[in-house]
Amino acid sequence: MTATDPSDDGALVLFSGGQDSTTCLAWALERFSRVETLGFDYGQRHRIELDCRENLRSGLGRIDESWERRLGPDHTIDLPALGAVSETALTRDTEIAMSADGLPNTFVPGRNLVFLTFAAALAYRRGLRHIVGGMCETDYSGYPDCRDDTIKALQVALNLGMERRFVLHTPLMWLDKAATWGLAEELGGQRLVDLVVEGSHTCYLGERGERHDWGYGCGTCPACVLRAKGYTAFVAAACD
Rank of each mutant, 00 (worst) to 15 (best):
A11T: 03
G43L: 01
C24A: 14
A28L: 11
D20Q: 04
Q19H: 09
A26N: 09
V35T: 04
T23A: 13
L25I: 12
W27K: 04
T23F: 03
G18D: 05
G39Y: 01
C24E: 11
G17P: 06
Y42L: 05
S16Q: 11
Y42T: 00
V13R: 01
L14T: 07
A28Q: 07
Q19F: 11
G39F: 00
F15L: 15
W27N: 03
R45N: 04
E36M: 15
T37H: 00
G18C: 05
A26R: 03
L38K: 04
C24W: 02
G39A: 12
C24D: 15
F40D: 12
R34H: 14
G39Q: 07
F15N: 08
L12I: 13
E36I: 10
F32P: 03
R45Y: 01
W27L: 02
Q19D: 06
F32H: 13
L25R: 13
Q44Y: 01
V35Q: 11
E36P: 08
A26H: 03
V35M: 10
F15V: 08
E36C: 14
C24N: 15
G17H: 03
L12N: 05
A11E: 09
C24G: 12
D20Y: 10
Q44G: 04
S16R: 02
E36N: 03
L12V: 08
G17V: 15
D41A: 13
R31H: 15
D20P: 06
F40S: 04
F15I: 06
E30R: 14
E36K: 12
S16A: 12
T37S: 13
A28W: 06
V13M: 04
L29D: 14
L38A: 00
L38M: 07
T23C: 15
D41K: 01
R31Y: 10
C24V: 13
G17Q: 09
T23K: 07
E30N: 15
G18S: 05
A26F: 00
L12M: 11
R34M: 10
F32N: 07
S21W: 06
R34K: 09
A26Y: 02
L38T: 02
L25T: 15
G17K: 03
A11Y: 01
R31T: 06
T23N: 06
G17A: 12
L14H: 05
S33H: 10
S33Q: 12
L25D: 11
L14R: 03
C24L: 11
D41Y: 08
